[in-house]
Design a protein around this nucleic acid. Structure first.
Lengths: 191, 191, 191, 191
DNA sequence: GCCTAATCGAGACGGTACGTCGAGTCTTATT
DNA sequence: AATAAGACTCGACGTACCGTCTCGATTAGGC
């Protein structure tokens, strides 16, 4: 058992996951995690600095975006709407965790960096292909920076998250795609 | 001394302010505040429900937006840039507090509403006038929903705040105004 | 409630007493005491430095010798035997606590002093009167230092305690009184 | 390496000895011993039940009385004083260990027996010869139970140990021998 | 000018969670 | 087969805040 036992790690991460969704970040205690994982607190603290680090690890390992799968709907608008809906789901799924962590992240910059790296990353690809297809289809006049477009989408979702909270209805998706993303991408492609 | 002593209120709010900037929201304790304000914890809890409420009060009273004062620069682009810069400053100034609070807000919806009310409120006006002036000047082809525009601006700033953190350089302002706000407002006005 | 609440103190001391006799010093935890006294650990640590100090306090307040009351039996031998039996009882009653504490006392000299002060103190008187009566009755040729005599008795009991443990049978009392105390006091009085 | 390696045993006992004198029984941990002896905890627990057993073993092997060597001084008083001084030294040397162990011994009767066996054992002989010589010299009127005498001496030293602590000055030796042992042995021999 | 009542400081209280430590067990790789 | 290394469970430790509470002392305005 000389190296860290991966089985214990699993058990602890699993217990953490469960408790996160049952009681939330704030009301979840290390003792609870230990008890549920049939682990000792020492084992937890041997691997992670504290609760925030543990939860960030959970997020990174378990909550990673599954790629919103830019399904090809035939039109740019349809593709963007699909991606946007995926983004809403993802943010909605993680937001409790991330917001629960946020105050801690202020004083743990390194932790914040780690978490950020896992926040966009993969999703970005999901928007590049629809745009490229649209260019090929002549739906767009010229090439467009997909990264920038994705950033705007992300900003819209998080803003909604912060100032209104879930759920994200279809009217929010429609308004965002038709009122912001499409006008923008069109404007950019003709610039 | 029959009514609540307003002097104590001041002392408590001041102490809270100081501690917030010295140690941050999380590591600030009610005991610290009481000691620094030479007040008793009872006095604090008599006026506020708890730490979050107290801090929200501090934010509302002390941190309120000074109105980014959409100075008339003669062009829509200049006006929007001015507003956007003001928004950056405001968010930068408050973000620590707001993020510190955020996890609490998840379980205190009423508190969240109070805070939100103080988050945009006044700023919104600052963007309506530039837009109206631009319409008058024929810089814009038609009327535009200033609220929507302001929301986008806010979303961009908060997104930057969350995923990169301060400071917000001039290139961020330029990119946002030229790459997003101007194209959007133009597109909307011709729709 | 400004000063320390004496009722809580009682409850804590009582709980400590009970647990000491139920599980012994070593296996008694502060958490147990707190739970049984319906007190919080903080309250305990506010008054006492730690477990040893608490237990010493218990000993001092609750276990104090009730004065073995040298009942006047008419003869010096009878009186000494009575005192000696009382001493046996007292030591037997306290020995578990004291031995439980002893290792701690090594590194807490001040605590050790406090405890020692409560170990003989009162008992000493119990042996002075029998001796004085014996002198009056001409049973003893001259005056005798009662303190010294008591010390010998105490030494005998503790030695028995350490090297054999309880119980102390009547043959131990007889042997001690007839074989040691009486010969000694006789020798001293004729010196 | 099939059988238990005696070299490891030595290393462990040595490390235990060192630590006992450096930090005392209570603050010495098995991990420390293991680290210092470059041994593994498993190796320690394979040989000894636990810390108390290990320390008792150390005491038995390393701290055994070297026989206070009842040097023949020509007089019973001189011989007894010599033995008594030796006893003081021995007890002083071991007392930290024994007191450190004492609380554990309460719940480990077998261990207590083992330790007791090593506490008097040899010393007893040291007092028999002086007494026999004194009888031969006609210094004593009749035979005396040396064991009983030794017990009294031991009781005096331990009592002093417990209620005052070291060091044992010459006045303690003088008072004990002249005030207690000599009167007693005289009284016994004429009985 | 006094009295009654509200408010104050101080800080003890029951709780809950923290992060650390030591004991004793068990696993793996080495010798 | 016994070892060194060290991870493991368990449970106690002592600390820090939380939000509630009970004290006297202090200060108001109504008499």
């Amino acid at each position: 058992m000389a190296p860290f036992d991966p089985e214990r790690e699993r058990a602890i991460l699993d217990a953490t996951m469960e408790l996160l969704s049952e009681v939330g970040y704030d009301r979840m205690s290390i003792d609870q995690i230990a008890k549920r994982a049939k682990a000792s607190k020492a084992t937890i603290y041997r691997r992670w600095q504290g609760k925030p680090e543990l939860v960030v690890d959970v997020i990174c390992r378990r909550f990673d975006m599954d790629g919103p799968e830019g399904a090809d709907t035939g039109s740019l608008r349809g593709d963007l709407a699909a991606v946007f809906r995926g983004l809403c789901e993802t943010v909605e799924r993680k937001h409790t965790l991330i917001i629960g962590l946020s105050s801690t992240l202020l004083s743990h910059q390194e932790l914040a960096r780690t978490l950020r790296a896992h926040l966009h990353a993969r999703d970005f690809d999901a928007v590049r292909e629809p745009v490229e297809r649209a260019v090929k289809r002549r739906e767009l006049a010229g090439p467009v920076d997909a990264r920038r477009l994705f950033t705007i989408a992300e900003a819209l979702v998080w803003h909604r998250m912060i100032f209104a909270g879930p759920p994200f209805g279809p009217e929010f998706v429609a308004e965002s795609v038709d009122g912001v993303l499409m006008p923008l991408v069109t404007a950019w492609s003709t610039a």
